[in-house]
Amino acid sequence: MTDLNTNPIGEIERITVSENPRSQWWDVWAQFKTHKGAVLGMTFFVLIILLVLIGPYIWTLAPDRPDLLARNKGPSMGHPLGTDQLGRDSLAQMLAGGRISLAVGVVAMTLSLVVGSLVGVLAGYFKRLDGMLMRFTDLFLALPLLPLLLVIIMLFRDTLRAAFGLEAGIFILIVFVIGITSWMQTARIVRGDVLALKEQEFVLAARSIGTPPWRMIMRHILPNVMSPIMVSATLGIANAIITESALSFLGLGFPSDFPTWGRLLFDSTNFMTLSPERVIWPGLAISLTVLSVNYMGDGLRDALDPRIRGR
């Protein structure tokens, strides 16, 4: 795929098209399209999202409906992915679980990225804020996660549930909890990169022509710290899906009748030798989602890098 980037035909195409005035984002998209892995990843990601959004309307079995006569069954016509120890349909659970897991994964990851990048960029760029923000990061790194969760959930669960209803309330809570406990690494890494970037010539040049700080950050700094952010995003989505399963396991997440991928994987671990197919589906779903996000991240990073784009 490296040769695709240096494809002379692609080059000519680009030059001819570029006669029309285009936005920067159009360029990014054009470059993104040439990245085979990214396109594949995106197609797959969209496919999974469509599947979990539309799937439950096509496969209408209720995911929480036990069928005590069909417990621990392998794949069959009635249950294409088999059933669990209570006779609940695995396919319906996978579809319903995917909705929650994907939503939690994406939203929590975004939240953690936004907070992490914001803190990282501010700390790296403004020397006055550096000490304070980084000590704040240390504090969050040091806090024991589990008691923190217990406290947050004790304080806010009932309030949020009253305000937004059961499902939405817990969703907000979980996304918030995962988001605010996972941004620290991103912040540290981004700050490090910004510190290094700040001393580069092009930043100096930009500053000397009087570019205001926010413009500096948006135009010059952020695009250049994209790669660690993208890696964090990929790892973050997997992290959020798994953390959610740990939370439900501790009784801090969604109620037990809301399946999620992480939870399905956890519950089925003990059934590994009894019905191996039960373990494979959630494991596969999580891995493939993470993989597709990873390739999308790769593509986006390349597309955002003007050096590669211009090549």
Binding site: D64, R65, P66, L68, Q85, L86, R88, F249, L250, G251, S256, D257, D267, N270
Partner: peptide, 16 residues
């Protein structure tokens, strides 16, 4: 109830 795999199974069945 408390968090425990068997209890969560019971909850699901009894709910039904």
């Amino acid at each position: 109830t408390s968090t425990n795999a068997v209890r969560q199974d019971f909850q699901a069945i009894i709910k039904d």
